[in-house]
Simulated assay, not measured.
Amino acid sequence: MTPREWADEADEDSGPLSIFDHDESNGSDRPDGSDGGTGPDGGQRAAAAPNRRRRGRRLLLWTLGVLLLLAGGALGAVAWTAEHYASSVARIPNAFPSLPASEQPAAVPHSGQTFLLVGLDARSDQPTTGKDAKAPAWQVGAQRSDTMMLMHISADRKSVSLVSIPRDTWVPVPGHGSAKINAAYSWGGPALMVQTVQDLTKIRIDHVAVIDWNGFRALTDAVGGVDITIPRTIEAKGDAREWLAGTHHMDGAQALLYVRERHGLPNGDLDRTKRQQNFLRSLMLQTMNSGTLSSPSKLTGLLGTIGDVASVDDRLSNSDLYDLAWSLRAVRPDGVHFMNAPFGGFDTVDGQSVVLMDNGAAGVLWDAMRTDRMDDYLAQHRTSADTLGTDVN
């Protein structure tokens, strides 16, 4: 039924008039109490009143019908857009270890959600042949993870904490003995990486996201670049470029160089993880402050790149992604915290330069994350060298 047909049918209703109809009434609400039909043409005016009422009601109902259709169309467009972009995010099958629940950390009720973020220089799940063909999200020995972060979202959705585990951290890898933590991804993909991190932290991982640093080039350009401050000049070393002290407005290509480099940095891989965190913080600030979220054209450009940046585990449905994004709408930049896992020193094992974790201090951090007490932890460790500050090499 069209709006017009619906209005015509509704016009035959004999129910009481609304306040919108009173100007077309028979005059019973006139100040003099007359019926509006006392003149020579009073009978004609009285006869015309029902017709006016019908016309008034018809116009009102037709207008409401149009407004409802327009509103429905707008909501449909929003739903279609959300579905379209959520569907563009690739899903990772078999992202979790196939172990009995008794052999994994117990989930703590009402303690928020914890994601394992795995950063790669290039994903192996990009199209191979044909428009929609995709290779597996992981291939044995094809790549080692470049970055690992635990992202904890508080149960009240007011804060987010991201903790980097340097890729050279020496840890036990189930079934392989001790090794650098990034080897776990190469040997067993996301599932072995999840198992390794769960064994290390005793935190149950709820979801996995694999991030492609190459994709961040387009994401950075979509928000107009980012401003990153280099506190002191970093000299060129090997393939690494020179970075002059000062604030740099970086496009996607420059930002990618910034997050990849570690040669020439005073603390090598530790400084590299802080650069990655600093970039993500700057990207978040730029997204919030550049009007991207309030500009349809800018937002479309931003959303269009999400599928090129991240894959998520197949337990995350499109509706889960909507709910997660909506639940985080009140988070502000000062509610997002970055830090490294507590550093225990450098060492050499079997000829490999490795990073050691301070297991005692790390245990306190992991317990706070597991029980959703990160705000308390940060209040006590805000000045720690492991917490990201403004002075980032």
Rank of each mutant, 00 (worst) to 15 (best):
P333T: 01
W243A: 04
A142C: 02
S102W: 03
A379G: 07
G345V: 11
F343T: 10
N26V: 07
L200V: 05
D269Y: 05
V354D: 13
R58L: 13
T300F: 06
L316D: 09
L256E: 06
G73P: 06
A179D: 15
P296G: 00
A74Q: 07
D271F: 00
T287R: 08
A107E: 14
S88G: 03
D23H: 12
L388V: 08
V392R: 07
G238F: 10
T348R: 09
Q198N: 01
D41Y: 12
W366T: 00
T387R: 08
D29W: 11
D323S: 13
L280P: 00
R217A: 13
S317V: 10
S353E: 09
A209H: 03
Y85W: 14
P40I: 04
R57Q: 12
A71Y: 03
L299P: 05
L265E: 01
T129F: 14
E24C: 07
S14T: 14
T348A: 03
A142P: 01
R332D: 14
I203F: 11
M288F: 08
A245K: 04
H22K: 12
W62T: 02
A240F: 10
N182H: 07
F338M: 08
T287V: 08
D347A: 13
V226H: 06
S295M: 04
D313I: 03
L200D: 00
G42A: 01
G76V: 14
L244D: 11
L303R: 02
R370M: 01
S295F: 05
G238E: 05
A368P: 01
E261G: 05
A7G: 10
D358R: 12
R204M: 02
V364R: 15
G304M: 00
A135T: 05
Q198C: 03
T129G: 08
N214Q: 12
H110R: 13
